[in-house]
Design a protein around this nucleic acid. Sequence first.
DNA 1: AGCACGCCGACT
DNA 2: GTCGGCGTGCTC
Length: 793
Amino acid sequence: MMFASVIVSITASDVNKVFEYKIPEGLSDLIKVGHRVLVPFGPRQIQGYVVDIKDEVEYDAARIKPIIRALDIRPVLTPELIQLAGHLADHYIASYISVIETILPAALKSKSKKMLSLHSPGGEAELAWQGMNLPHEVEVKTLSASQLAALKPYITSGEVIEETVLTQHTKKKYARALKPTFAPRGDFGRAYKQLELLDFIEQHDEYVLLSEVLEHGYTSGTVNELVKKGYVRRTDVVVERDPYKSRVFEEDPPKELNSEQEYAYNEIIRAVEEDTAETFLLHGVTGSGKTEIYLQTIAHVLDKGRTALMLVPEIALTPQMVNRFKARFGDEVAVLHSGLSHGEKYDEWLKVRNGGAKVVVGARSSVFAPVENLGIIIIDEEHETTYKQQDRPMYHAAEVAKYRSRYYNCSVILGSATPSLESYARSERGVYTRIELNHRAVTRTLPETKIVDMSVEHRSGNISIVSDTLREAIEERIRLGEQTVLLLNRRGYANFQICQDCGHVPNCPNCDISLTYHKAQYSLLCHYCGYEDGVKRECDNCSSDEVTFRGTGTEKVEEILRDMFNTGIVRMDNDTTRRKGMHEKLLDKFEQEKVPILLGTQMIAKGLDYPNVTLVGVLNADTMLNIPDFRANEKTYQLLTQVAGRAGRHELSGEVIFQTYNPGHYAIDLAQGNDYRTFYEKEMAFRRLARYSPYYFHVLFTVSHETVQKCLEATTHIHQALVKSVTDKAIIVGPSPSPIERINNQYRFQILLKYKNEPNLLEVLHEINLHYNELYKKEKLSLKIDVDPKYIM
DNA sequence: AGCACGCCGACT
DNA sequence: GTCGGCGTGCTC
């Protein structure tokens, strides 16, 4: 007799463990490790995942129930992914099931429905059933309370059956198709068109899609006739969703590498040939041709019969990037990103699982792609915080990548023009192998960068958001027919409304943050919880009608620029790109129609590569400096360097202008000089002094609750628990209110733990987590434990 | 007494 | 997550 260890598909701390089931004789060949199975669980039937198969059990043998059936033909999880899930659950203080369901596409999660059907016809039950005019089967949810009450006795008596049905999130996609019957042909008379169409259909022995037939100019009338005469049958066929199907990709041959690229490539190939799990930090200035190195490395890995994973930040998953991969590797590429529906993602996932795609390109969660025999994992723009998931499990893609690389003995490449301090520090200590690319691939020179001091500008009478220097530079580009990219890190129209009499600013009633004015909707929006309010005609506080707007957002700047230059502008921010496909559409417009100005928030800082862009302007280089986070300087440096890198990437040389009120600040000053090394040293000195990462590891505890009281109680308790269990070398900061004290009517308090070496830490964290999960149920308290947080807020 | 409601523990 | 058991308290 064989038994299976099963993780059940329920998120609750007390079922966060293995449940054991019998494998019925008839299923013993069918059920393998990694399978999804249907199991009895109390009075219900639910979905679970087999994580182990063994011939002995620990639980009371008499109480072990059998698995009902397998839900797949092939297992959905490999042993490697199961092992990975266990590691992540442990490392990031998450439940096993939450990690498993993060690894798998959402389409595989089960949704349960309770159904009622009439069992024994005749008798009172049927009378009642028909009296309500119910179909053969009904979902309990759709019944009214009185209907349910009326049926209840029959459910108890067994005349009406109640059962739980599992449904998947997605169905296969079907398309109408035509199938030839190859019936002997009769006389077609004058029906030449039908004869022609029949010939066409009979060329395919399987089927032809109806859409294809119509594309060839045949009409549905002709089709109908053939169906009526019995030569053709209509059918539905399963089709694979391929969002890139209608596009043609030109083949893109490998480009010649320059000497720097060549060196980097050879270094990486050496590791690939040695089959070592080495981590490279590829530190290359913007435009140094990192992507070409990635592409050729992947090509080499594929030649060896292995597979490749390529991660990019969601925002950089632009059509430009995708096209480049499609053009180089054709159908061997699977692309996974947030723009795909559950079904589309599932199809791409299946393609990978079945070995139909050897290269996977995608955002964070693609690091879990079910590839086997991995040969290389690449993480582009490794400093991006989007690689860290913000809800549970709060994993970082680079950690997952390194774990997988050890399993497959393959290398990891972390690429960036502005590496995170953590990665660079590791490369200094020799944990990572650092490779530098100091020159641009095409122009060889970086754009010339200027800093404009906005306070000087103000004193000389220009109070506009555009300095004279920047205005002249833009005018010059318009005259030359070249393009400008402008970064304004703030969406909306004006920042907020303010009363000029009493200084009152309308705040969100649910969050401790001011409301942002959006002109298009003529409303005030909360960017945290989505709360919307009308624009105030008078002050809520003093009823004065002297209310005005302060601060300038993208929407407002677009207006200002239109007035100033009287030219075409493409605006890209959260508001204009929310709809599916808009991101791509706007960029296409910018490129194809050579629109003179692209104005946007941070989303334009990455990945754009347009030869005609020769000027980049940053309207407010300072905003990032003011975020309440110890990484503010690092983020500022990175953002400025990245956006500056959009200029002059090809034949035309580029120019960059940073507008700032802090011209002497080292993050801005060194970004202007493109001096990463000096920035690294200065910032490391600050981190050392303030005892922050990379000198210390961090764990952030955030407690939220409706009341301040409970938050304080809980954080104080956690503080005590930590003091008791960590060494005296660790530093515990807090409890203190989070930078945004309240979001969605929940107060938030935090504790930051800083440590270097705590052998028992994971154990302690799991204990605290368990304890507060219990409390959470009773007191509606929530505790988030963020291991290696990327934001301290 | 009879039942509605909410809390709590168990689920292999 | 969700079911059933059980205690509390309200109504007939």
